[in-house]
Design a protein around this nucleic acid. Structure first.
Length: 576
RNA sequence: GUUCCAGUAGCUCAGUUGGAUAGAGCAGCAGCCUUCUAAGCUGUCGGUCGGGGGUUCGAAUCCCUCCUGGAACGCCA
């Protein structure tokens, strides 16, 4: 908003640009000494065929100093110094409306379907699935915040040849397993053993395939076992989702689309897109510069591409999705490009509104995790360790805290989620437990701590303070000489005001880029400024002219911190 | 081999329509708790922005090339 304020002031002096153009180029100087904002004039210098420093000087002179904005030419920049009291009046006025929501409702109710999490049955919910889950949830929150109607879909991996293997392994070595109490760990042991033994026993692969065929043809025993795998696994997944605070609007396994693929194949045939190649049936995508997309394997069975085509059509036609978002690892980038290309060849323009939002691979000790070798890290173990760590720190630093266990859970899990969201999602992550469990510096607990510390101060407000606070700022807005404005003009307070002011644009950028880390970074910045303020300015002082505006500022900071943490799916206890 | 992603301080990373002296955190070192939570704050150390060319008044950012790591590249998802 403050940027807008400057842009409007500058507009009359720069005939080449509208306020929107100015808004676009205005930046925040690297050092606050240089001003609140800066206008680089290099492109303007090009238009006017003059040296940038000259333009800057001329422009600064033309604009001149006003009571509410002062300018200064430095090199190729016009630096802007706001009169803090004047700018605060404008800010407070504006903020009064912004604070209800922070984001512009740009979505206008469009329906967005987000494919996220999507773990595989009978496989552990590993730290790898955490990424899709928390990134997806954050993107969902961003869409909702911007006025979209978003739906989260969990596309469970509940079908495929691996279930044949799973059943075969169970039949051979799992007979004494109590299926009512079996865990994913038990299933994993069987799966790993299958792959170990299959190396010197080729008959196993045949058994696996045979069981999958039985499953596909509705064999009773195979189906019974498959259902048990599904139920037991979902139960464990739900435990993870509950701890992560994630829920879904639809949980539809891949098997849900089993009866919807024939129609896809028929359409492809009808449209003349299906070709036989090396025994398989494919859609050629040479004109897109892509390898062909396999629709039917040489044995006539379907493949994941077929399933994903049916899934996309279902989400568009039945679920009414205007946008289809896929929060799926970057290793599937080619696959999604193919799927989108096939749908477009089928004549579906809506495929242009399918967006693959990829993220980097998660490694451990530099190695890719391999389920087959049992090389996995259970998310639950990581969460438990994080919570234990949080518990120990609370015991050490704040043993009198109420509700210690709940707070430990919030902080431990907050640390893990934040750790995954703070970096740009495309980066490969070399998972380090030590790093994930660090609670100092740029971490979730740092933000939670800051929030809690501010909330604690706010909790000490008297009722009278609370009442005055409701009216104090409206009065300050209309009163030029309000002492409140003066209190909010000190360096640490002004820095916080400028940070708060940025929040709406931060939200918009995070949404456009599908990048939760933008919010995470912002929340860290704001927390840092808040800690600085907290350290430099005492809030609960006698003098109401100091106390009330500081309380107001803290109230707004806490609100934005909480809002940002909510977006990231991280809890924010009142005390920690 | 082809395509895509990445390479910035010892480590993990910001820096996205090209702009001021390249910024944080961790680790290290030095300070700050009789004052609202020290999970904090302050200071300090630390850089051939992978290498080399080019475009530009100006390049971590754009183009070319090479090096390194990773991923994908037809019957797994």
């Amino acid at each position: 908003m403050l940027k807008q304020y400057v842009a409007e002031h500058f507009e009359p002096y720069i005939p080449e640009w509208h306020a929107a153009d100015i808004l676009n180029v205005l930046e925040i100087p690297p050092d606050t000494q240089l001003g609140d904002f800066a206008l680089p004039v290099f492109t303007l210098a090009k238009l006017r065929r003059k040296a940038p420093p000259l333009i800057a000087r001329e422009l600064a002179e033309a604009i001149g100093d006003h009571s509410h904005i002062k300018v200064q030419a430095v090199g190729g920049y016009v630096n802007v110094f706001l009169n803090r009291k004047e700018a605060l009046r404008a800010f407070l006025e504006h903020w009064q409306t912004v604070r209800a929501r922070y984001a512009e409702p740009t979505g206008k109710g469009e329906r967005v379907i987000i494919d996220m999490s999507s773990p595989n049955i009978a496989k552990p919910f590993g730290v790898g699935h955490l990424r899709s889950t928390v990134i997806g949830q954050a993107i969902y929150n961003l869409y909702v915040k911007h006025g979209y109607e978003a739906l989260r879909v969990n596309h469970i991996g509940d079908w495929g040849t691996q279930f044949g293997k799973q059943i075969a392994a169970y039949k051979r070595w799992g007979q004494d397993l109590d299926l009512d109490r079996a865990t994913v760990k038990d299933f994993l042991d069987l799966y790993v053993r299958f792959h170990e033994e299959a190396e010197h026993d080729p008959a196993l692969e045949h058994e696996g395939r045979a069981w999958f065929q039985k499953l596909e043809s509705g064999d009773l025993e195979a189906t019974r076992l498959w259902k048990i795998f599904v139920e037991r696994s979902l139960k464990e997944f739900d435990r993870m989702y509950a701890r992560l605070g994630v829920s879904f609007d639809a949980v539809l396994g891949e098997s849900f689309y089993n009866d919807k693929m024939d129609a896809v194949i028929a359409q492809l045939k009808e449209k003349g897109l299906l070709e036989e190649s090396e025994g398989a049936h494919v859609v050629r995508l040479d004109d897109e510069g892509l390898p062909p997309c396999i629709i039917l394997k040489s044995d006539g069975t379907t493949i994941y591409a077929t399933r994903d085509l049916a899934t996309a059509m279902y989400r568009h036609d039945v679920m009414g999705g205007d946008w289809l978002i896929y929060v799926v690892g970057q290793e599937q980038t080619l696959h999604f490009r193919q799927i989108i290309a096939v749908l477009k060849k089928m004549g579906y323009d809506w495929a242009d509104r399918m967006v693959h939002t990829p993220f980097g691979l998660l490694r451990f000790a530099g190695k890719k995790l391999s389920t087959r070798r049992g090389h996995v890290i259970f998310l639950e173990d990581v969460l438990d360790e994080a919570v234990a760590r949080a518990r120990a720190i609370i015991e050490e630093k704040n043993p009198a805290l109420e509700d210690k266990e709940a707070v430990a859970e919030a902080v431990g899990i907050g640390a893990i989620i934040f750790n995954d969201l703070k970096n740009s999602r495309l980066h490969d992550v070399n998972f380090s437990l030590e790093e994930a469990l660090n609670f100092d510096g740029e971490t979730g607990p740092y933000v939670q701590y800051t929030h809690a510390r501010v909330r604690t101060v706010l909790a000490r407000m008297t009722d009278e303070d609370r009442n005055v606070l409701e009216e104090a700022l409206p009065r300050a807005r209309s009163d030029q000489d309000s002492p409140y404005l003066y209190t909010l003009s000190t360096d640490p307070a002004w820095a916080l005001i400028k940070s708060l002011d940025r929040y709406p644009e931060v939200l918009q950028e995070a949404l456009i880029r599908h990048e939760p880390s933008v919010v995470a970074r912002y929340v860290l910045d704001l927390a840092k400024e808040a800690n600085r303020f907290y350290h430099q300015e005492r809030i609960l002082v006698q003098d109401a002219a100091l106390r009330l505006p500081r309380l107001y500022l803290m109230q707004e900071v806490a609100k934005v911190l909480a809002d940002g943490l909510d977006l990231l799916g991280i809890p924010h206890p009142e005390q920690i």
